[in-house]
């Protein structure tokens, strides 16, 4: 029994790490622009495809060369998808910065559709097998079986998240980003380069999401053009759960959502004596979300103090 529990905890941690990495992108963009960036899920997908292209180009052998190539590819993925993120912001969101809040959201929906279809047309709609970044060695641990890939994913995700937290808290650029997300107009009046802050966000957010895509593909061994839709939606839910705009919230929300899902799959049939099966997992997860929001309308780590600072007065 303990074996099962430990196994389930590790299952949830792995899924949660991936959700959290993508949720970070949503939450950062939201913090600055108050925008649900629907294209984020597709940038996550793009990350996996760029990594695949990298592996095909470099065709690394084994051992140290391979590790070096993997590191190079990770950096390349971050740069390429980060660049795409900045380009998207410049063309599709910047002209809409002063219009109603629905407009950029729908522009992102349109781009999301276009990006998915573009990848589908160039790479084909088939799922493509993806070789893992880490060698998968199963480890037996107190009756549970955990692979090194799972451990690698959790560690890599945590490292990246800590790095991001430090960057925002310590670096000069981080200060600029924080100022802009606190209050864009005031920051602008004080001479903060708002465009620079927004570009930074749109570089780091998609970059992290793309690395999430690479981790995802190496864990599941498969990637496809539509893989960003559902994962993106889940990560967005996680960001909301944690309190959108909050980096800690996104991470906690990601892990929490994963735990809800694993719990829903594992325990629902047992607790309800088979009356509610695993097919009710998503309903369970959404009900938990609604429950959390009933008591904390701004999510777990969102600013609760003033309802007004949460969103601009007039949404659209």
């Amino acid at each position: 029994m303990t074996g099962i529990i430990i196994q389930q905890i590790f299952n949830a941690l792995t899924i949660g790490a991936i959700y959290a990495m993508i949720a970070l992108g949503y939450t950062m963009v939201y913090g600055v622009l108050r925008l649900i960036n629907f294209v984020h899920g597709d940038l996550f997908m793009l990350g996996a495809y760029v990594a695949l292209a990298g592996f095909v180009l470099l065709a690394p052998g084994g051992g140290l060369v391979w590790a070096l190539a993997a590191a190079l590819i990770a950096i390349a993925v971050f740069m390429v998808v980060g660049g795409v993120g900045v380009a998207i912001e410049r063309t599709a969101y910047k002209p809409l910065r002063n219009s109603n809040r629905l407009a950029p959201m729908l522009s992102s929906l349109g781009l999301s559709l276009a990006l998915q279809t573009a990848v589908q047309i160039t790479m084909g709609p088939q799922p493509i097998a993806f070789q893992s970044l880490f060698p998968a060695i199963p480890l037996d641990f107190l009756g549970a079986r955990i692979t090194t890939v799972q451990i690698g994913i959790v560690v890599a995700a945590l490292l990246l998240m800590v790095g991001l937290k430090l960057f925002i808290a310590r670096s000069r650029l981080g200060v600029v980003v924080r100022a802009v997300s606190e209050n864009r107009r005031t920051a602008q009046l004080l001479g903060v380069d708002v465009d620079k802050a927004i570009s930074t966000i749109f570089f780091i957010g998609p970059g992290l999401g793309a690395l999430g895509g690479v981790l995802f593909a190496s864990y599941y061994g498969v990637m496809m053009p539509t893989m960003g839709i559902i994962i993106g939606l889940k990560a967005f839910t996680a960001a909301i759960l944690g309190g959108i705009g909050s980096i800690t919230g996104a991470v906690v929300g990601g892990f929490l959502l994963a735990f809800f899902e694993v719990f829903g799959t594992a325990m629902l049939p047992i607790l309800t004596n088979g009356w509610l099966g695993t097919e009710y997992r998503d309903i369970f997860a959404f009900l938990m979300l609604i429950l959390v929001l009933l008591f904390r309308p701004a999510g777990l780590f969102g600013e609760q103090t003033s309802e007004e600072s949460m969103v601009m007065k007039r949404d659209f």
Partner: peptide
């Protein structure tokens, strides 16, 4: 009722969840 206090995107995600709940219920 449950969304009376919610605003903006919190409202969006709960309504989205409601839509999915109804669809999944019908499917199940």
């Amino acid at each position: 009722f449950p969304v009376l206090r919610l605003r903006g995107d919190y409202l969006a995600i709960v309504t989205l969840g409601f839509g999915e709940i109804i669809r999944v219920l019908i499917n199940n």
